[in-house]
Simulated assay, not measured.
Amino acid sequence: MTIKMDRRKIRTKQLLRKALLELIEEKGMDGLTVSDLTERAGVNRGTFYLHYRDAADFLEQLKTEIFEGLTHEMARINPFELKYYADKDEPYPPSVKVLEYFDKHADFFRVILGPKGDPAFPLRVKEFMKDRLFNHVLKNIPQPDDAAIPRDYLIAYVTSANLGILMHWFESGRQLSPSDVARIITRIGGDGPMAWTGLK
């Protein structure tokens, strides 16, 4: 009985997620209602209210869930490992995992990163990237006084460039595989910006 209930709950969530993303793509995020969601999903309003306060709560829970999964994958990235894979012209494995995560949740990212999506979401991803790069990778590495590029500008460049590649991947219909895009990021990161960190 519990397994049936769990499956039913998962199925309900999947239907609501699909309905939510369709409605955002059609109408934008403002004015989403529980009635719109449940009618589109074919889900009873009472069932919806068992799990969520309103449409905004459902969207926020979904964004949090996706973001947590994404940051779990992104936390494994160490940009100083890129050079090793770039020299072999192989995609950096943690980057592949991140892109596979984007691909797995492509329905969500396509809408959220799209013109009617949530402009705050990519900024949230970018802030995580900046925090990860500075506080967990570069923090304890002294920057030479004569560094050609200040570290904060380097971090701004790296995070914006990677987010830009991701956005372009979605805008172009994800025609390349996650591995192909990871190889592009590896090539750029291995031979480009990280060479300006001051490390020999």
Rank of each mutant, 00 (worst) to 15 (best):
Y85C: 00
Y101V: 01
M167I: 15
N78L: 01
D107G: 06
R174Q: 14
Y85M: 07
L138N: 00
L163C: 08
A156C: 03
G69K: 13
T159V: 13
L176V: 05
I165G: 02
T71Y: 03
I165V: 15
H105F: 14
F121T: 14
A75E: 09
Y101T: 05
A75F: 03
F128D: 03
S172T: 15
Q143H: 06
Y153V: 07
P93W: 11
I112L: 04
T71D: 11
N162G: 14
V158F: 06
K130A: 07
V111L: 10
F102N: 05
A161Y: 13
R151H: 04
D89E: 14
D146E: 11
D145L: 11
R151A: 05
L138T: 03
N135A: 04
S179E: 15
I185L: 15
K130Q: 08
E90L: 14
A182Q: 11
H136C: 01
L113H: 12
L82F: 14
K130P: 02
A147C: 06
D87V: 10
I77M: 09
D107S: 14
A147P: 04
F109S: 11
A86D: 10
I165N: 08
D152Y: 13
Q143W: 07
V125T: 13
T71R: 15
G114R: 00
A156I: 00
Q143A: 09
V98R: 09
I112V: 14
G114H: 08
K104A: 13
L70E: 12
T186D: 14
P178R: 10
Q143Y: 01
D89V: 08
P150H: 11
E73M: 09
K97G: 00
R183T: 04
L133H: 10
Y101S: 01
G164C: 02
V181Q: 11
R76L: 11
D118T: 04
A120S: 15
D180G: 03
H105W: 14
F121R: 08
R76Q: 11
H105M: 07
D107W: 08
A182L: 05
L82H: 13
P93L: 11
P142N: 05
H136A: 04
S177Q: 03
V111R: 13
P150R: 07
I185D: 10
P119M: 09
D87W: 05
G114T: 06
